[in-house]
Amino acid sequence: MAKRIDVSGLNVYYGAFRAVEDVSMTIEPRSVTAFIGPSGCGKSTYLRALNRMHEVIPGTRVEGKVLLDDQDIYAANVDPVAVRGQIGMVFQRPNPFPTMSIYDNVIAGVRLNGRRMPKAELDALVERALRGANLWNEVKDRLNRPGAGLSGGQQQRLCIARAIAVRPDVLLMDEPCSALDPISTLAIEDLIAELKTEYTIVIVTHNMQQAARVSETTAFFNLSAPGKGGMLVEMGDTNKIFTNPDKKDTENYITGRFG
């Protein structure tokens, strides 16, 4: 569980457009790494390249290396499906499966993959995942109701439960709170703080306080030039980035002078 990610020289292209330019970084296990930066600077693109989710968009291409511990996830005969099984993802908008109950949503990773498990084990898995996502107490009496009937914040925690139920090593979160109210946001932040004891967590956020509150390490992305792709400007200890960044751009962004 909880693996290190080592990225070197990663470029991501949409057709001819280079959306992410030459990013290298190391993401430590059992910690939270936050990506911040203005809209359109390629944070989502880069994040999706970390578990090969970008490949579902036609015309995308990647250059560079992404090591999960010692394995290159872009090596020749690596199955992207297997990669995604180890590197889970939570999206900006909660997206529970509308045809499934809360219970079935949590075990979707098992069911959709056609794996069989005794009922008792499934029950235990559901409880563990929902407890892990701080949702158990709210839904334990209505596990068979549709997942789409929950509030937005509950749906997002259901999606997190669904993601951790497949026991990934890494959890990627793309602005998981941007569609949520402050109370639900706090619930998710608490959850992230608990999850980092077991997982490697990467979170994209537009909320500076959130980055400061939840992360150990912060990476600041910016456009390399207007109309061009995004690049990594600076990465380091969250405290340092927010109090004493090395680069002028970082300071300007954090103090709200642009972006």
Partner: peptide
């Protein structure tokens, strides 16, 4: 995408 992200 939710399904792909579960390794399906």
């Amino acid at each position: 995408e939710a399904s792909y992200a579960l390794g399906v």
